[in-house]
């Protein structure tokens, strides 16, 4: 599964290191994290990680391989 997670605001390079398994790109006031997601547990873990870092998730969607 591949997902992309769109969060509000520009993430710093340092904070992006909290998602070492994902790539990220900053665009127009948002940061898009994207990459492979192993399973549901991983997916919910990513959401929890966003919450614990105070990130505001705007969109989360599965993208074709």
């Amino acid at each position: 599964m591949r997902y992309e997670i769109r969060v509000d605001g520009h993430m710093s390079e340092t904070l992006a290191k909290a998602f070492p398994e994902l790539d990220h790109v900053v665009m127009s006031g948002q940061t898009v994290l994207f990459g492979p997601v192993v399973d549901d547990a991983h997916l919910y873990g990513l959401l929890a990680r966003c919450q614990s870092l105070g990130l505001r998730v705007l969109e989360m969607r599965r993208v074709p391989e």
Partner: peptide
Amino acid sequence: GQSTIADFLLA
């Protein structure tokens, strides 16, 4: 600014 708030402010 446009950065993520917690991240930016904490830094």
